[in-house]
């Protein structure tokens, strides 16, 4: 269910706080030095699994591929009991119906990218139709992209209005707003885009499409987490965070969890408020869980292909 709304009273986005880049880098480096003991590690790994939006966003996606992914979402590694499922499957709008059918009543959500993902370079009506189509096909969550060109040209009102229009088209579906931070050039801009998205009604803010490098660096994610914190303190509304792209191993994922815990607190440490957008992360986490369980380092030969 949608948890944020379009805010009537908004600040002047030109005056969004600036970000101390060196300070962010040093703070982020600290998160990577935390020692995680075995028991917490196991719990952390299972939490990571449960936060993954298992993703396939390729031109060559077929219904078969999507069905396979949905099966994987429900049966991550059947030889190991007590594993959680992933949080959601993330697909293109044309695959939503197929995914919905394949997931049935498993409780796993279907997220659909939208608004002419990944470039967002399409007319307004088409973006609205794109979103409605996904929602009508049963998408529980919509991952929209912002118009980076307009944003960089300084047309913040355009970007705000566009996000708000998509928010309306979403109905009760939760809206994730992709900032595509790899194209925003500086952390100041990331902060500003985060503010715009949250005031325009984003239920989640998300770093990247996964099509552009760099994607979800810890610096960018940290900047966005700080924006979420400030927004929460000001409005009392919780907004979720989804780093996506480039998080392909367990260690990095655990570092992200440490960062969330120490920035926003334990209230954000569940899949309602934090997600990983990833395709290959799940297998690495599974291999780590098996390593913790058996004591042996694992081989990709014994895990499903993704």
């Amino acid at each position: 269910m949608s948890t944020n709304k379009i805010h009537k009273k908004v600040p002047d986005f030109r005056l969004s706080p600036t970000v101390d880049k060196v300070g962010v880098e040093e703070r982020v480096a600290r998160f990577q030095t935390r020692s995680i003991k075995n028991e917490s590690k196991m719990q952390g790994l299972k939490m990571v699994l449960n936060m993954i939006d298992l993703t396939t966003l390729e031109g060559k996606d077929t219904p078969g591929k999507v069905r396979q992914l949905c099966y994987k979402a429900q049966h991550l590694h059947d030889v190991q009991p007590d594993l959680p499922t992933v949080a959601a499957i993330c697909v293109y709008p044309s695959m939503v119906a197929e995914a919905k059918k394949a997931l049935g009543n498993s409780g796993i959500k279907v997220a659909s990218v939208s608004t002419a993902f990944p470039s967002g370079q399409a007319p307004h009506e088409i973006k609205i139709m794109d979103t409605r189509f996904a929602v009508e096909n049963g998408a529980d969550e919509i991952d929209m992209v912002i118009s980076r060109g307009k944003f960089l040209a300084g047309e913040y009102n355009f970007v705000f209005d566009e996000i708000a229009a998509i928010k309306e088209a979403c109905g009760s579906a939760r809206l994730k707003v992709i900032l595509e931070t790899g194209e925003l050039a500086s952390l100041d801009q990331v902060r500003r885009a985060s503010d715009i998205a949250m005031y325009a009604g984003a239920d989640f803010i998300k770093t990247s499409t996964g099509k552009i490098q760099p994607a979800a660096t810890m610096q960018v994610t940290y900047t966005m987490l700080c924006a979420i914190k400030d927004f929460y303190l000001k409005t009392g509304v919780k907004v979720g965070m989804k780093p996506a792209g480039g998080i392909s191993n367990s260690k990095l994922a655990l570092h992200n969890l440490v960062m969330v815990k120490e920035t926003l607190g334990a209230g954000w440490l569940n899949n309602e408020w934090f997600r990983f957008g990833a395709s290959s992360l799940a297998n690495d986490v599974l291999m780590q869980i098996m390593k913790q369980t058996t004591g042996h380092y694992q081989s990709a030969d014994y895990f499903s292909i993704d």
């Binding site: 004591g295 380092y297 030969d301």
Partner: peptide
């Protein structure tokens, strides 16, 4: 032990 125990 690392040699025989590694699955890969």
């Amino acid at each position: 032990d690392a040699f025989h125990a590694h699955m890969d």
